[in-house]
Amino acid sequence: NQESVVAAQLIPINTALTLVMMTTRVVSPTGIPAEDIPRLISMQVNQVVPMGTTLMPDMVKGYA
C-alpha cells in the first residue's frame, strides 16, 4: 500500500511547506504520494490544513 503525505500539524493558509509539517501514512483515499515530499518543500497550501489531514493535489499551489 502506498503512503500519502499527511499534515503533521495545523498548516495555516498560504504557508510554505517544510519537512517538519508533513508525515506519511497509508490512507484512503490516497493523496499526494510520499515520494513527492521533496517536491512539496517550499510550496504553499491554498487552504487551512488541519493536523492529520491528507494533502491532496488541489490543496498545494502549483502542484497539480
Rank of each mutant, 00 (worst) to 15 (best):
I11G: 00
T15I: 04
A64M: 14
T53L: 13
I13R: 11
P12K: 05
M59F: 09
T30Y: 14
G31M: 03
V6S: 04
G52K: 05
E35F: 09
Q47N: 06
I13A: 09
I11E: 00
M51K: 10
I13W: 11
V26D: 15
A64Y: 03
Q2R: 03
V6I: 07
M22V: 10
Q9M: 10
N46E: 09
Q2D: 15
M21S: 03
L55T: 01
P12Q: 07
D58E: 14
L40D: 00
M56L: 08
S28E: 15
A64G: 14
E35H: 12
T24V: 11
A7N: 00
V20Y: 10
A7S: 12
N1S: 15
K61G: 05
V6G: 01
A16F: 09
L19K: 08
V27P: 00
Q9C: 05
Q9R: 06
A16Y: 09
P57A: 15
M21V: 03
V45K: 00
T18S: 08
P12F: 04
V45F: 01
R25V: 15
M59P: 01
L19D: 03
T24L: 10
N1V: 14
L17S: 00
V48D: 13
G31A: 05
P57W: 13
S4E: 00
P29L: 05
G62I: 06
D58K: 12
P29D: 12
G52R: 06
P50W: 12
K61R: 10
M22D: 00
A8I: 08
I41F: 11
N46S: 15
G31D: 01
I11W: 02
M22P: 00
Q2Y: 10
M22W: 02
V20S: 10
M43V: 08
M56F: 07
T53C: 12
Q44R: 12
R39H: 10
V5Q: 01
I13E: 14
V26Q: 15
R25D: 07
I13G: 09
A16D: 04
P29G: 12
I41D: 03
V20P: 05
T18P: 00
K61C: 14
N1Q: 11
P33G: 12
M51L: 10
N1I: 14
A7H: 01
V26E: 15
D58V: 13
V5C: 04
M43D: 04
P12H: 11
L10Y: 10
Q47T: 09
M51S: 06
V5S: 02
L17E: 00
L55Y: 01
I13L: 11
S28P: 02
V6F: 03
P50A: 13
A16P: 12
T18D: 04
A16S: 05
V48P: 13
I32K: 01
